[in-house]
Amino acid sequence: MANDRFELNKNLAQMLKGGVIMDVTTPEQAKIAEEAGACAVMALERIPADIRAAGGVSRMSDPKMIKGIQNAVSIPVMAKCRIGHIAEAQILQAIEIDYIDESEVLSPADDVYHINKNKFDVPFVCGAKDLGEALRRIAEGAAMIRTKGEPGTGDVVQAVRHMRIMQSEIRKVVTMTEDELFEAAKTLRVPYELVKFVHENGNLPVVNFAAGGVATPADGALMMQLGAEGVFVGSGIFKSGNPAKRARAIVQAVTNFENPKILAELSEDLGEAMVGINEQEIALLMAERGK
């Protein structure tokens, strides 16, 4: 049964592929996102750019606010809990959330342990900067992986870096001889079976999305070309001049990521993009939380 649950949870992520998951803070935003073609929404009180600006400890959102969003849309609803915060995750499961993001965007509750996600029935998505992190999260029960990017910045450079590292490490594992896999498991600090899976299949055992800093249709297309199977957009939409139009454009860009002509049309006249912060200007690197 437990194994069945993990398969079903992996399967839900498969259904999200080729889609865009959008951060929303109100039922109204959730509806805009759904109408624009979001394949799921992430319900949170403050989008990452505002969390970054506000500073202080950031926590799981108010369940009442999340329920409001669940009632507003028919697509899957995700919500974030703090890294290692078992009780927050239990609360989100109790309100029947479709996916929990154990997220570095919130303040970590545990600086050593992640949640043992195998103990839950609802699925988890976790961030990863490289193959080792991804496989460690999967061993803990994550049914979906995303890059960590640098949330709330509108700067895609870290998401690109994480995706590049991940893909390059996957390729390396694929070319290894069988004896080398044991050593790889040791250096990556992950179970041998997971390394073996990557070696045999050339991909992670779960779906892998891009997240962090995606702000334009071109950013979405870039991440898809680098091997992402779908895209999370956080602050990029509702921090921009025309959220509905930008959201629609990013959705179409993710479907047509290999078609520059269409991408050119989609990039026209979208209004103000979020201002963003360059990587070098950031005081707090959220991606460094939880390895």
């Binding site: 889609g19 759904e34 073609g37 394949c39 799921a40 028919s74 959705v251 179409q252 479907t255």
Partner: peptide, 14 residues
């Protein structure tokens, strides 16, 4: 295929 019908339907229409 499977996926989100709202997304696919919207893209088909557009």
């Amino acid at each position: 295929p499977g996926g989100e019908s709202t997304v696919q339907g919207k893209l088909l229409r557009e």
